[in-house]
Amino acid sequence: MRRIVHLVHTSVDGFIEGPAGEFDWPVMGPELSAYVDEVDRGIGTFLYGRVVWQMMASFWPNAEEISDSPHVRKFAPRWRAMPKVVVSRTLPQPGDTAVRVLRGDALAEVAALKAEPGKDILLTGGTELASHLAAAGLLDEWVVAVHPLVLGGGRRLFTQQKERTPLRLVESRTVDGQVVVSRFAAS
């Protein structure tokens, strides 16, 4: 069975985007970029909720024209080539044949996706889908990059958690002298 790894950037006060929806604050330095590359090596599918998908789909197809960041230049071709799954009841079918939209019971369809053969699944960012999957016990690993700023409001990291979820710390390290990346596994 494949694992679902949730990779997310957050502020010190636990927000994944600012009060006006801004996501211009994570800094992808060389060490954080290398860490993300390390996580990506075991991944065979990218998983998104609709909101994060729309952000990704507006940037990554032509990312090299928008940014000259070394991380962007390295990751963009991988993103375009990777199979992608989007959980959404309202998203029109994207024109990209590498994208599959799950429209039914999200938890059942993601559980079926996990049961498919292949490499692990990476859920990037977001809060709604991640929260629902975590509450249903479908997330296997969390990679949380805490950036050194306080956003003071916005969208919280987890919104649907009603019960405690014990996790096991796998590793924690500081990258680029400022971002703390912690990796947790389901207990």
Rank of each mutant, 00 (worst) to 15 (best):
V150C: 13
P148S: 04
A57F: 00
S33T: 09
L113G: 14
V175Y: 03
T127Y: 06
A20V: 04
V181Y: 02
V72P: 06
L151I: 01
T165G: 03
V179I: 15
R89Q: 13
W53S: 11
F15S: 12
F59V: 08
A76R: 00
P77R: 07
T90E: 10
I16L: 11
K84A: 14
Q178L: 12
Q178N: 14
I4G: 11
A98L: 15
Q54F: 02
G104A: 12
E109W: 04
V51C: 11
E163Q: 13
V8K: 11
A145H: 00
V143G: 07
L47Y: 12
F59A: 06
V27I: 13
G49A: 01
F15H: 06
S11L: 08
T10F: 05
P148N: 01
G44F: 03
G104D: 07
Y35M: 03
P94I: 08
L139A: 07
F75T: 11
E17Q: 11
W53M: 08
T124Q: 13
A106K: 01
A185V: 12
R41E: 15
E38T: 14
L123N: 01
L122A: 11
A57K: 01
A108W: 02
G42S: 13
Q160D: 15
E65C: 08
P77Y: 12
L47C: 08
G125Y: 02
T174V: 15
Y48C: 05
P61Y: 00
V146A: 15
W25N: 07
